[in-house]
Design a protein around this nucleic acid. Structure first.
Lengths: 201, 201
DNA sequence: ACGGTTGCCATACCGCTGTATTATAATACA
DNA sequence: TGTATTATAATACAGCGGTATGGCAACCGT
């Protein structure tokens, strides 16, 4: 047993375990003992890194807020310069990455919603989650603005509001998919339909 | 103590109490004892009407799915025939009713999200919640179609997809508002902006 | 009117789960 | 080398909360 261990690395390891559980069974199924098993360690070890369950959950929220945007950005392909409209393809790939279209993203989204529910009404936590959203929002608005200058998107769009609308729509479609109210085909069709109206012609 | 009591009325009464608690403190704060207090009865009485907590929660999901659409429709004003574009005003009022713009709707939405999270992955429950959504969706699509025929909305819109997009956007904005990622002004501005593009001129 | 039924309640029970305690092995440091 | 420190684990503890039990009062049908 090494005396010196990277505490934050262990915390992230545990956080990932929590997210896996939350993605699978929701947050109700995330008892401290289950987290320990999922992380491959003992209950005592988990306690060693988090003084209380509440502190652990707060850490996971923070972790989620800090990494969720990076994960989305990393998951989507770079702007396809070969495409006739790079911006459109980029936004479409972003949507595909954000929507729970397969089991992996379904689990991620479920975990995300569980922690979102946890953060409601707690300013410290909502701030953490809001940060990632704000970064993404800025990036999309900037992209739309650029696409407009390049003539890829139709003129007269309000980049800021378009970004709000697009991200809100993706979020809403995500909820629908999780509830099986909508199926993946339908959700993607809606995204494409919406993106089409942003492009000229 | 009357021997004959309307069982379903009592169940609905309890369900409302659960929804109030869930809207205030989330579902974690909905212990059976708290539900009893909120409903103004004893723990034993609650047990009398629901064999288990699980059965109670399932009933509330069912109750929610059955009544949520009615609540929304009832809350929004009738199509303003005096308006230059009744359909637009109707959709705007629908959005205003669905978005958590005040404390009441904030609580309702929070409760809704809590139970939505509960229903994920449970076909029986998701079906209940999906029903309301489907009804609303049909109604909106029909309205858009009609608005198009009347010339209130621009030609070439796909009513079905427009409905999916609009409702998803409202849902997404709702989540944003609950998280305080977006403020009411911004959300309404986004809705108006989107509706504007559906109208000609 | 009276036994049975039903609504209602208080309370006891008990398993689950977060937390505290203690033990042990291993390493850093002096 | 010896000691303090730390990572890890096993176990004990305690309270919370869902469930079960028994009793009481009121109303029904006969």
């Amino acid at each position: 047993m090494p005396k010196r261990v990277d505490h934050d690395e262990r915390r992230r390891h545990i956080a990932e375990a929590v997210l896996r559980i939350a993605g699978r069974d929701g947050l109700n199924g995330a008892r401290l003992r289950d987290v320990a098993v999922e992380a491959g360690m003992s209950l005592g070890s988990v306690q060693h890194y988090f003084a209380s369950k509440d502190e652990m959950l707060r850490y996971v929220v923070h972790y989620l807020g800090a990494h969720i945007t990076e994960r989305i950005v990393a998951g989507m392909c770079a702007p396809d310069v070969a495409s006739a409209s790079p911006v459109r393809s980029f936004l479409l790939s972003m949507a595909s990455e954000m929507l729970p279209l397969d089991d992996r993203r379904r689990a991620e989204r479920r975990a995300g919603q569980a922690f979102t529910a946890l953060a409601v009404g707690v300013p410290e936590l909502t701030e953490d989650l809001g940060d990632g959203d704000r970064r993404l929002h800025e990036r999309v608005a900037e992209l739309i603005d650029q696409g407009q200058r390049d003539g890829e998107l139709r003129a007269g769009l309000n980049p800021r509001l378009e970004s709000v609308v697009l991200l809100a729509m993706i979020e809403g479609l995500g909820s629908d998919l999780l509830l099986s109210v909508r199926d993946p085909e339908e959700a993607l069709a809606a995204v494409r339909y919406h993106l089409d109206r942003l492009t000229p012609g």
